[in-house]
Computed example of a mutant assay.
Amino acid sequence: MSPVRGADIPCLEGDPAYDVRWPWREGRLTPGLTCVFRMRNEAHNLPWVLPGMLEAVQHVIVVDNLSDDGTAEEARRIADELGAGERLTVLDYPFQVARAGTEHLATPPDSVHSLTHFYNWSLSQVRTSYSMKWDGDMVLTREGVALLADLSWQLEESGAVVALPRHPLTVESDSVAWLDLGYRFLEPWVYPMGPEFTFVKAFEWEVREFPDDSDRIIAPEGMVVELKWLDRDEFTHWTSTTDFDSSRAPRKRREWEVFTALSEGRGEELLGLHRIEAPPGVHVIDHVTRTWLPQAPRPLVRRRGRFNV
């Protein structure tokens, strides 16, 4: 019986179950794309988030971080209903993770309480040659599903990194939502698996590194919406809204601006913010992702503002 390989990143707390052991050191990875969700209390989003992703990629990993709303159970239920239960892995990460901003900055990167270690441990569970970090509030449109399904096989051996623009959608009710097309939110999401593509600590959050000479693919607009709910606190994962630095966190500043305006009934005042009302009997999320966005004229974002965070 071969000995257990040592940890590549031992956690500061000395719990071997949550040390990071990189899978590429164990042999060649299986071709394909795995989506890694790190989730906390995302059960309300999963009916829109998970089905498209299970259709688009070869495997999905849900890392549940102290949810108390049945996130893990809901993920399993949806996958089983779709006949995709064997392509879903649900894992538990039972530690309080530092919030982005000041709290993250004060936490050692190899602590189980660090965003950096949490993300690296989650990434180390992947066994395919490509992986993508994804959020539990991000919904693929039908075009987005088709794009990822094609890319999941075409990327093999390319070494390319894929960036996807996303469009924040604040849900006011089942029939009304506000789509932010005032700025271009662009971020790399899909990466090869390997030692040059791991997470490191930055000031406010974790950052996944990649070589400067990596090929970069930028997906078209209209592939992804990021759900926000007007009746929920969407900023609990940040230490404080004062951490929304204008130079390093402009995306969060914009989200706070939109949330504040909508809470005060001033949504019409913000340039690039569109009020969308769904037809009777259709949920506004389905209307936006299946009808409104595919039919909207391009470019969707007409201002120069661009957030790469």
Rank of each mutant, 00 (worst) to 15 (best):
G6E: 07
P10V: 06
E268A: 15
H283G: 13
F235C: 00
D245H: 05
T242S: 15
H104F: 11
A17G: 11
G27R: 14
V62G: 14
P188C: 14
L54E: 12
V97G: 10
R87P: 13
E234S: 01
V4W: 07
P51S: 04
D231W: 06
Q125R: 12
F210E: 09
E226V: 01
K201R: 15
V176L: 05
T170G: 00
G144V: 03
I218W: 05
H167R: 05
D212H: 04
V207D: 12
S124Q: 03
L186T: 08
L181D: 00
R216A: 09
L82Y: 11
G281A: 08
L186D: 10
V224T: 01
M39N: 07
E143I: 05
W121S: 04
P220E: 02
M53A: 04
E234T: 02
L29H: 13
D212Y: 00
L147I: 07
V145A: 10
V176K: 01
P280R: 03
Y130A: 02
R290A: 04
E26K: 04
H117I: 08
G144L: 02
H287M: 04
R266D: 14
A98V: 13
P211W: 05
G32Q: 08
V63L: 15
F307T: 15
P47K: 01
S111W: 05
Y93K: 09
L273S: 03
R184V: 10
Q125N: 11
R232G: 05
P108N: 14
E86H: 12
